[in-house]
Amino acid sequence: MSNVSLQIDGKAVSAKEGMTLLEAARGAGISIPTVCYHEKLEPFGGCRLCVVEVEAGGRKSLVAACTHPVQQDQTVNTRSKQIDGIRKVLTEQLLAYAPESEVLQALAREYKADKDRFPREPSFCILCGLCVRYCAEVKQKYAVGFVDRGPSREISFVPELAATECWDCKQCFPLCPTSALQAAFVLTRSLRASPSPARPALNKQVETAPVPE
């Protein structure tokens, strides 16, 4: 692995080839906000709060620091009017789902985000996917996953697996930036009483799943 030197916020930074901008910045003590990042997991690039401005070969572009690899002689800016503006809007959008989340409230203070900017939809889940990816990549249990797409995307436990695997694990709970995962898990159990009309095929499994105690 050869060394790569670049500039982040005017500071000369040295990094290893193959590192991401986020790793390089954090290694140099420069903080970049993230919600979906976790050092044990593959970079996801979902929350996009880590957008930074990269200048290479005279071209400026906005990239996600958590997925973008370092390059020799890159110039990186982690704050600008545009970046702050993006982080503000993104925080506001996520706050609509989880207004009480401490992680989001801290971001709101930093980027002057208004938690009432968008209509409330307190599902508590901001779809960072930490639980899904931790369960798959670290635990390799695949007990929780995404379902559907776009604005209809949700996380969903596979009931049979949740019944056998989750009760003694719960390692994803503390990862949740909105503390809502437990709610989702409890919800899975309660679903037995009220199957979702939209997804009977999934309910079928819910109905046959034993209740974890």
């Binding site: 695949y142 996953g145 596979v158």
Partner: peptide, 12 residues
């Protein structure tokens, strides 16, 4: 293939 991935695929 884990059921969670099948659920995701079938709803995606």
């Amino acid at each position: 293939v884990p059921m969670s991935r099948i659920q995701h695929t079938a709803t995606f």
